[in-house]
Design a binder for these strands. Structure first.
Lengths: 160, 160
DNA sequence: AGATACGATACGGAGAGCATATCATATGAC
DNA sequence: GTCATATGATATGCTCTCCGTATCGTATCT
């Protein structure tokens, strides 16, 4: 009895978490859209900027692969990001591949960006204050592993 | 001493969670992008479809407000979603406002959509199996409250 | 009733995204 | 080495998206 009920309630709980995850992604993307509008950047520009900030410096083609975009599309995105002072294109004449360009995230406008996320950041601070250290660690670990699962799933869909 | 160290480590933990949240949003959007590509839908189409599925049926203008888009843009998005059989536009001649259109999510292609998310869903099932009921409840509550915080932050940026 | 506001969409222009071409550089076979 | 082929980044041109505005129908207010 207990095990049956338990299995059923766990399934419900898991489904609920998946739905919440979808809703969260959607809401955060809506927030990103507002932020991008203030900065005159497209959603995809912010997506790419985030990749460069987290995984950069990298080449435009590596960025294109990671973002699932055509290399020519990335050229246009980088033009906008560079024009706005968000990234720099670096060519290294002494590098191993002189065709390659390295895209590096600049910090010049970080404060501005942080400012636009301030509302969310403050709300999160308040929310997180209600958790003890163990719970925070649990959340961090869950987010990290879910992201990793997302990366795998994305790559699987991207192949072919 | 302990309180100072504790405060400092909590701050680090909170910052880490915020960064993980950003990375997670980004990765899930990349996954969505791949899903959308398979369905010949733009990212924004999937965003809107999700809103309709979760908060619908609603009018195009309500959807535009929620998504932070121009009403004319939503017309085009709904054209694509309708053409693909994802939503239906309903006009109710007996409704309180005969100008209004109601956008309703259809279930016809739900299985197809679920299939594209299957990789992520399975990975999540495995991940969630490692948590007990209390931990699942903690995660669900965190996701729900974070989404709510995101909604507030988005609305604040959207006003003006 | 008339004036005004609002919902949805048509239309046109600016620009995004991408397939392809181009040019420079790398890599491999011989 | 030399030639052929592959690869990185970007230019070019085409299609489609997004959005400002106009339009049409309906609702609301006085």
């Amino acid at each position: 009895m207990t095990s049956i009920n338990s299995g059923w309630s766990r399934r419900r709980a898991a489904a609920g978490i998946k739905a919440s995850l979808r809703a969260l992604r959607n809401q955060m993307s809506l927030l990103n859209h507002q932020v991008g509008a203030r900065l005159e950047l497209r959603d995809v520009d912010l997506d790419c900027l985030e990749i460069v900030q987290e995984h950069g410096p990298l080449t435009p083609s590596a960025l294109a692969r990671r973002a699932g975009l055509h290399p020519a599309t990335v050229t246009g995105i980088l033009d906008r990001l560079q024009r706005g002072g968000w990234v720099a294109r670096e060519r290294d004449p002494d590098g191993p591949d002189r065709r390659a360009v390295l895209v590096r995230a600049l910090k010049d406008r970080n404060a501005e960006l942080l400012g636009l996320y301030a509302g969310m950041s403050t709300a999160l601070d308040g929310l997180l204050a209600g958790y003890d250290d163990d719970q925070l660690a649990l959340l961090a670990d869950f987010l990290r592993r879910t992201t990793e699962a997302g990366r795998t799933a994305t790559e699987e869909l991207g192949r072919d």
